[in-house]
């Protein structure tokens, strides 16, 4: 039964990680790029209005970084629970 306990714990941590990463995913795209775009457009980033920048540039950069963070953290998690082979 210890094995299944281990598995449950692993899955729980995995879900928590997914929840955090997907919240960031939602915030940069649907949040900054769509829902609050007008408010953010009052702020400038060089020649960009910030909301517009998130919608056409920033969100995409964050997506790429999110996946690589996920890869790194999951590899660590796999190791912690002995699921790396």
């Amino acid at each position: 039964m210890e094995n299944s306990q281990n598995q449950k714990q692993y899955w729980k941590e995995n879900i928590r990680l997914l929840f955090i990463l997907l919240s960031i995913w939602f915030l940069v795209s649907f949040g900054a790029g769509i829902l609050w775009v007008e408010e953010l457009n009052a702020i400038r980033l060089g020649g960009f209005k910030l909301g517009f920048w998130f919608a056409q540039q920033g969100s995409i950069y964050v997506f790429v970084i999110l996946i690589f963070i996920y890869v790194k953290l999951m590899n660590k998690l796999d190791k912690k629970y002995g699921y790396d082979d």
């Binding site: 997914l18 990463l21 997907l22 995913w25 795209s29 790029g33 769509i34 775009v37 517009f52 919608a55 056409q56 969100s59 995409i60 997506f63 999110l66 996946i67 996920y70 890869v71």
Partner: peptide, 21 residues
């Protein structure tokens, strides 16, 4: 212009779902 952002975010953000879920 800005309306075109749907394609930029839509066609890249899907990969986050794909990779994580």
């Amino acid at each position: 212009g800005y309306d075109g952002s749907v394609y930029l975010m839509g066609w890249t953000g899907g990969y986050v779902l794909l990779a994580l879920l």
